[in-house]
Nucleic acid binder design. Structure first.
Length: 326
DNA sequence: TGAACTACCCGCCAAC
DNA sequence: GTGTTGGCGGGTAGTT
């Protein structure tokens, strides 16, 4: 159960990345029945701490807070600035006692220095991925994803992908409905899959063409309950299959079928949470067709079976609130 | 869970 | 010469 979240802050912390953590975990949304965390910004180096924007960060909390945190988050860290040994030890202790640690952007260098990424997949901002791989050869660096979930140790890519990782954690803890509600309050997209590419060639979709991809994407969202293949989507877009695949990937950062599976799994998750449909019916309503296919993809994307997922969320009140301090 | 079949993805290359 | 499109085929992933 995620209750206490700590943002560990050192010198020259990046303000946007820290802001992401404060916004997701530190904002009280209990008026909508959303979870409230015991969120604390903790100085892990001697004050005064000066952000990369030049202002001073004054917090009453220190490194001792990490010992009781359920989640420790490292915002972007100056990769040329060695993290203190006490921080590295606290991170290792946290993982040993079962807590989770996460990084945003170059915060991955701190987790790597602590040895927590050895033998694990990890990501960071694409500009720093080569340096991370060079310094820490035991880390399996993937520069082409938004975030990597290795269970207790999670890493995200540059800046805004930190939001995706935070929402991913909330989705795991409280379900898709809560994560979507938090995303709605933040006015950000609720579901970007971790495997989505960091760099998208053409982020702005043109709307004035007859073969507009956006029209097809809208059609898919409205027809997820129907079974159809990529060739069908290509025909709807008035393109050859090869061109559709190429333009879809360039526009969205993921291949058509992979994106489709992600959308179907997300819909299945909502139906499992919000309806009493059995797994077979959910499979039909999400276009998977059979329960076996749904189980296959649900397990791959969510790490659990549809039934187990429903059991873990059907009785938990989505609006459960937790005491908050700091 | 494993096997067989099918669909998908993507590098390559030629045509426009 | 450059960029886009679309076919081919092998490897991979999805489906039954």
């Amino acid at each position: 159960m995620l209750r206490k979240v700590v943002a560990a802050v050192g010198q020259h912390v990046a303000t946007f990345e820290l802001g992401v953590l404060c916004e997701v975990f530190g904002t009280d949304r209990s008026d909508e029945g959303l979870p409230v965390y015991d969120f604390r910004v903790c100085a892990v180096e001697p004050p005064p701490l000066v952000s990369d924007a030049g202002f001073t960060i004054n917090t009453p909390y220190g490194i001792d807070e990490l010992a009781t945190a359920d989640l420790i988050a490292i915002a972007a860290w100056n990769a040329d600035h060695d993290p203190p040994a006490e921080l590295l030890a606290a991170l290792r202790d946290a993982v040993d006692r079962g807590a989770r640690v996460m990084s945003v952007c170059t915060g991955a260098f701190v987790l790597a220095e602590a040895g927590l990424l050895d033998g694990r997949r990890a990501t960071t901002h694409w500009r720093h991925a080569a340096e991370l791989a060079r310094r820490y050869p035991d880390v399996d660096v993937d520069a082409n994803v938004l975030y990597v979930d290795e269970g207790q140790v999670l890493t995200s890519a540059g800046t805004a992908s930190g939001i995706d990782l935070c929402l991913h954690i909330i989705r795991q803890e409280h379900g898709a409905a809560v994560a979507n509600a938090v995303a709605r309050r933040m006015v950000v997209p609720p579901q970007r899959d971790g495997g989505q590419a960091q760099f998208i060639e053409a982020p702005v979709v043109e709307h004035d063409r007859g073969d507009d991809l956006a029209v097809v994407l809208d059609w898919v969202q409205a027809n997820l309950n129907k079974p159809f293949g990529v060739d069908h989507l290509a025909r709807r877009a008035n393109m050859s299959l090869r061109t559709f695949n190429r333009r879809f990937t360039a526009t969205t950062g993921t291949a058509p079928h992979r994106w489709l599976i992600t959308q179907r799994v997300a819909l299945a998750q909502r139906l499992l949470e919000e309806t009493e449909l059995d797994v077979e019916q959910v499979a039909e309503q999400t276009g998977f067709g059979t329960a076996a296919t749904l189980r296959h993809h649900f397990a791959r994307h969510r790490g659990t079976s549809p039934q187990a997922y429903r059991r873990s969320f059907c009785c938990a009140a989505p609006g459960e609130t937790l005491s908050r301090a700091g």
